[in-house]
Design a protein around this nucleic acid. Sequence first.
DNA 1: GTCAATATTTTTGTATACAAGAATGCCCTT
DNA 2: AAGGGCATTCTTGTATACAAAAATATTGAC
Lengths: 218, 218
Amino acid sequence: MGQRRADTIAEELEERIFDGTFSDGDRLDEVRLAQQFGVSRTPLREAFQRLALSGLVELIPRRGAFVRQPGPVELMEMFEVMAELEAVCGRLAGKRISDQALAELNEANAKCLAAVEAQDSDSYYVENERFHQILYRESGNSFLRQEACKLHKRLKPFRRQQLRFRGRLAQSMAEHEAVVKALTAGNGEAAAAALRDHVAVQGEKFHTLMASLRNAAE
Amino acid sequence: MGQRRADTIAEELEERIFDGTFSDGDRLDEVRLAQQFGVSRTPLREAFQRLALSGLVELIPRRGAFVRQPGPVELMEMFEVMAELEAVCGRLAGKRISDQALAELNEANAKCLAAVEAQDSDSYYVENERFHQILYRESGNSFLRQEACKLHKRLKPFRRQQLRFRGRLAQSMAEHEAVVKALTAGNGEAAAAALRDHVAVQGEKFHTLMASLRNAAE
DNA sequence: GTCAATATTTTTGTATACAAGAATGCCCTT
DNA sequence: AAGGGCATTCTTGTATACAAAAATATTGAC
């Protein structure tokens, strides 16, 4: 049933929620948006359901669809779960990763390093993505990979800014290398620990995250 | 937007998928089901979307809604993730659990023991549920709790039969006690390991799971 | 002037109608 | 008889219409 328009509309709305056009608590008006998109209410309602699935929107019976941005507490919780999921991927990958995948990780890491030296945080961001996607895959568990990807995507808008700060790139880089080293040694537990620390929000990262939240609220 | 009928219809369909009225690959016919429920196609389509969210149904554009039961591989993967999620809950609970919650766990466990002695696997099942729900809660992470509950619910139909076999009840009971002991000692790592083993599908459990799958296919 | 009850207006939820794409069957060709 | 192309039929996706619930405004009493 995924449909032409409802699909694209869902994406468009997702975009607008991420970029701040809609903020927390806003009601998504069916008729207004329908007019705006030049469609009827039906595809709009289907799009709302999609967004509710990914947690971006809350559907309240007989009341409507409301934008639901995670607050500080929920965000911390989500990052904690992300850290644990990545740790699990790392531990499983310790036993299951292929030599080829290890080579891919090294390659992604090399590009990361190049980006660090070029002070190119955007490029770092892209390669960082690749690094983590490979990890999810090499957990050898497709279901886990999907779940990790879902949460990863959901946290995207909050993670991006994290990297734009002095020293973070180099530190992040070192953490990646610890992960690869552990995986090369087949030490899943060490990889898990390294990933948990890498993803966890703590210390300096906590403050930057809170600051970015404050920005988004405006 | 959750609505009166679409909501109940989704639950009803979920029921029918679990109890085997619909099996893997079946197409859910909008018009037939609409007539059957005495409603129009609209609420049916909304219900489909709900089910797609929880992964029970796959929506293929311009083709329809198809029942999607996990195969053996996917099922093993889901159990592996469940084991890891519970392990995470356990590890976090090691640091965060309250004395009151520990008392609740002991109480649930006592009732489990009574059920074991009475050879009452249904009653054991209920208290076992409670045991795990408490654990999710005591992870101190609401988001984690929700995710754990979602997966737990999805695996429900496959777990139930697991307990109906000789020796499983007693073994499961012993595993619970190991978890409580670890948590009482504040040893998160030990609790995590105990939970991982408790939930993981391995050894005998593997064969009973495969057997139950074969039954469900008929 | 304030509060409450009621009337009005919005807005959601559902039904029906219509349009377009996919599947099926038929006929024709080779 | 087998394969391909075309027409028919069925099914999904979208629009519109209508009903019921919620929100809002209005009126009246104190």
